[in-house]
Design a protein around this nucleic acid. Structure first.
Lengths: 244, 244
DNA sequence: CGCGGGATTGACCATTCTCAAGATGTGTGG
DNA sequence: CCACACATCTTGAGAATGGTCAATCCCGCG
């Protein structure tokens, strides 16, 4: 019996807790029921029916809220290794929609399996709750960004945060990463207009800091970019206590 | 043995679940260790030491994050009946600070007491998790507001949301409510400058919609204000499933 | 070849910010 | 009781960040 350690979720959690063989096997077990969703077609889990959560295996998803006036605000992006609708199991979910940005593969996690896993290994439960708490910290950081950072810093910060998250699951490094988002996605996430996103991206590119183009993000001068964005990945690490 | 039903938390939870005598007593038990904090003096629970949560009994608190450049973003306000640092018990807390806006009274909740209460009455646990989930929904709504609403709608929406929350614990009605916030608080919460907050408040006042003055908020034309702000309290109610 | 989604760019506009000057009110020390 | 410091609120003038509208380009696809 071989235990895959290449699942993105496993990889992510392993960064923070050294998981035992049994725990790895349990995680693997949670990844049995794979499902596929098409880009652009909303996969809304709401209320009664949405008793299941998913772990994103490949592809990108965004969770967003639509305004009465037609504009939308993207609350968060999910990348491989992230949960979708975890809160609808643990707590009760808030009412936003999920839209796959590209075709995705996701493992359906049954509530009962998850709870059983929790009961069997408290360490795994801790690790998963850590992940949930990290998601929350990201939403808060997102709030701060929109409220108190100008467009340039906002976009720089966003690209760096994505990079950190992707690196954690092996989908990026200090050079850059693949990124299927359009400039419209950035605009909806960052509270800007697409036109202005375009202008700021050009500015960052011409300053030799970072390129966002043709599905790739390339860091040209990571140090200067980090300094410009005042990027401190502390809220993503959350290391400390959990390593015990 | 008398069971007080006037605790703000009890009042809040009762709106959504009919609590039994035993559950009411348990809630009462959670409110034994009262503590006081002074306005302006940060009560930061971070990491190791902060194993306790509080239930705010009276007064207002805000949770915020400081930026490297000195500006701050207020993430949320807590009013009587709200938890402070609940996530540091259930999950792991993110790293923002708490500051009492006025002198406050708060009941310290020990982790063990809370977990015991959860074990004894699943219904109470559900109710408390509902409250946590509602807090999260508010942060998301806050994010949407900053990202996609202009200053007038933003402020109108904020004042209405506060009104709804306060009404739930008996501290306000459709006429208005007492509110110790300064215009600087509004600015830091809504991602605006204090000067502009002032101008918008004047505008709302002169339009005969709402007055924010001398520690009071008065709704002059609630219907028109709700319409202007596109205010839909759905995300605050979360009724439905929980009433079963 | 024509169409549609995304990216670009310019010109102009407006919401919101910054700076600055007062006004008002409250608490403290003299 | 007065004077002063300090916090809060107000208002004006000018600047700026970011938005809207509109045209164009590029490219993959049926």
């Amino acid at each position: 019996m071989n235990i895959p350690v290449n699942l993105p979720l496993t990889r992510k959690l392993s960064t923070f807790v050294a998981l035992s063989k049994a725990e790895l096997a349990l995680l693997d077990h949670l990844h049995q029921r794979n499902r596929f969703f098409s880009a652009g077609r909303d996969m809304v889990h709401q209320g009664q029916s949405g008793q299941a959560a998913y772990v994103l295996m490949s592809g990108w998803v965004c969770s967003y809220k639509l305004q009465p006036d037609g504009t939308r605000q993207i609350v968060d992006f999910q990348i491989p290794g992230d949960f979708l609708g975890l809160r609808s199991v643990l707590l009760r979910t808030s009412d936003h929609s999920f839209e796959p940005i590209v075709d995705i593969e996701a493992a359906e996690v049954l509530t009962e399996d998850l709870l059983e896993a929790f009961a069997q290994t408290p360490r795994l439960a801790t690790a998963i709750l850590w992940a949930a708490s990290r998601d929350e910290a990201m939403v808060v950081e997102h709030l701060v960004g929109i409220g108190r950072r100008d467009a340039v810093v906002r976009i720089a910060h966003f690209l760096l945060e994505l990079g950190s998250r992707l690196a954690l699951v092996g989908l990026g490094d200090t050079k850059g990463y693949d990124c299927p988002l359009t400039q419209y996605h950035l605009a909806d996430a960052l509270g800007l207009s697409a036109v202005h996103v375009n202008r700021v991206l050009r500015q960052l590119r011409e300053a030799g800091l970072v390129t966002f183009r043709e599905g790739h993000v390339r860091f040209h001068d990571l140090d200067r970019l980090v300094k410009l964005a005042d990027f401190d990945p502390a809220y993503l690490d959350h290391a400390g206590p959990l390593l015990k």
